[in-house]
């Protein structure tokens, strides 16, 4: 494990960390000479690949694969953008200045986001990342928050509510356990209280990408489009 043993006291959380893939790098788009469109297409390609990795990771969250296929789909369709934004917040945490770190080689500042048609999203994401930056998230917290974001669906059609509830309870317990082992009794609650802002920001992100696709005809990969359409 790349993480010090003393930092990982909780089996479920250490499993979440170990099954995470290495951070993806952006592949520079070269299909256009328009710089801001190139940035946007590069970002969309990165999101599409991250989504693929996220789906693979979700299947390894203890309890997830035991859910019905319908519920697995509902949870992912509802929480995928939230989970991806936790990743952005985590990567941005160590960055200085006003950048958003989508990948090690894809750091966008306000002007770049505005040029790409993502001015609103930039503001919303800076607000979210500043909140997590102030909390100084640990790797364990970022991983469990991602899993919680996936589990915390408000999907109206849940096939088996009891199983989904048990899945949520397991993650909640792991977070509580982890924080009490660090003698941080308030952090679990604080992290859960960040979920409304996370969802609100994810909704804005979904709207932004759909708007770009529908109004500016920005081409999107099939998986990304399918997941955006599910919203």
């Amino acid at each position: 494990s790349p993480f010090p043993a003393h930092a990982v006291r909780n089996k479920l959380i250490s499993h979440l960390l170990l099954t995470e893939s290495a951070p993806l790098a952006a592949n520079q788009d070269d299909s256009t000479n328009d710089g801001s469109l190139r940035t946007l297409l590069t970002l969309c390609d990165l999101l599409n690949r991250e989504l693929l990795v996220l789906i693979g990771w979700a299947k390894q969250i203890p309890g997830f694969s035991g859910l019905s296929l319908v519920d697995q789909m509902s949870l992912l369709q509802s929480g995928w953008m939230e989970a991806l934004l936790v990743g952005v917040a985590w990567r941005t945490q160590g960055a200085s200045g006003e950048e958003l770190v989508f990948a090690g080689n894809l750091r966008l500042d306000k002007a770049q986001c505005r040029a790409a048609g993502l001015a609103d999203l930039y503001e919303a994401l800076r607000h979210l990342t500043a909140k997590y930056q102030a909390m100084n998230l640990s790797a364990e917290e970022a991983a469990v928050l991602k899993a919680v974001a996936l589990a915390n669906s408000d999907a109206s059609l849940v096939d088996c509510p009891d199983s989904v509830q048990r899945f949520q309870d397991g993650l909640h317990e792991a977070l509580q356990d982890y924080e009490s082992s660090r003698r941080e009794q308030h952090r679990a609650g604080r992290l859960l209280m960040s979920l409304p802002l996370l969802r609100q920001t994810a909704d804005r992100a979904v709207e932004a990408f759909l708007r770009l696709h529908r109004h500016r005809r920005v081409p999107l990969h099939k998986l990304l489009l399918e997941m955006l359409d599910a919203k």
Binding site: L52, I55, K59, L69, Q72, M73, L223, A230
Partner: peptide, 20 residues
């Protein structure tokens, strides 16, 4: 589930290649 074909395929652990 036709509308959510790719996600469905990915979750089913399909061995056939998925067109993304």
């Amino acid at each position: 589930k036709e509308k959510h074909k790719i996600l469905h395929q990915l979750l089913q652990n399909s061995t056939s290649p998925v067109d993304l």
